[in-house]
Amino acid sequence: MVFSSVVFLYIFLPIMLLIYFLVPKRFKNLVMIISSFIFFAWGEIRYIPIMLILAVMDFWCGNKINKFWEDKKKKRFYLWLDVGVNLLILFFFKYADFIISSINGITGLNIPLLHIPLPIGVSFNTFQSLSYIIDVYRGTVKCEKSFYNYLTYTTLFPQIIAGPIVRYETVDEELVDKKISLDNFSLGMKRFIVGLGKKVLIANNVGALWNVIETGAFGEMTVLLSWVGIISFALQIYFDFSGYSDMAIGLAKIFGMNFDENFNYPYISKSITEFWRRWHITLGSWFRDYIYIPLGGNRKGLPKQIRNILIVWALTRSMAWSIMEFCALGTIFWCYFNNREIVFTESIR
């Protein structure tokens, strides 16, 4: 199901909200879990079992890490077990066919391709799981003791399609105690409508123009039209992406939860690094905190810094030859300059 559809706006959401606000507090998470499953199952039901297995896995490993807090070896084992399983599933969906066709190419065999379409949201789900388990391992968050709450976190449907990436530490308190109020409801509704308008009224319209220009479905291409085209594409991408984030943030607000902001007027930036601090903020900071800095960032000399930049680049590149690809380039710039600032402030201290 997508937000910008009549089914979601006028059937799914009103019914879900009605039940959500009527049930007693302890059942609110249950309503969220069930509605998330309906939301996902609308398009394809096959990802739900995997989601459940991953949730059990994260939850179990998180608690094991907590149990063996003093035992460094065991602690690390459970961290890598969970990270490994998560990545394995992600890579399976993304690369199974790529690997098979490479093997066919090299060996001359003829193994049939699997043709598995990527389940919607698998990347964002992985990002969330990894942030949880790594934060538990680092001791920056307490491990979740209730599977019920963890499942709510990992299946949260508003942001799973296009972000923002919600870290466990952002919502851990709100999983238990939601800030439901008339104020939050109206703020959330407004935010959701802003996002909907951005997507349907602006992105879709300029997108239609770009669609015509891109496919060359008209006569002769001219200089003027090429500029009009790329400007409309830039507007489409921004309003579609940030519109989706607005809708997610708005929905969360209605449910009584607060997500991080994801876009901050990127097109007014005065430099490329500033652009990446304003564009898909949660993805950039995810790569910074969970990949670039753990690898040593830029504090271990230039050769290692170049290696780290390349790793981030390769990873994001392989995540999807898509919007992520573009984010990767930005992340590199961003990490590079941001980390320089970090080193700078640390040396002052």
Binding site: V2, S4, S5, V6, L9, Y10, P117, L118, I120, G121, V122, S123, F124, I161, A162, I193, L196, G197, V200, L201, N204, N205, G207, A208, N211, I237, D240, F241, Y244, A320, W321, S322, I323, M324
Partner: peptide, 18 residues
């Protein structure tokens, strides 16, 4: 927005590859 959605105008979904 509702009118536009009911009208079935151009409404692409960009996030299939995530």
């Amino acid at each position: 927005s509702t009118a536009s959605l009911v009208n079935n105008s151009f409404n692409p979904f960009l996030y299939f590859r995530f």
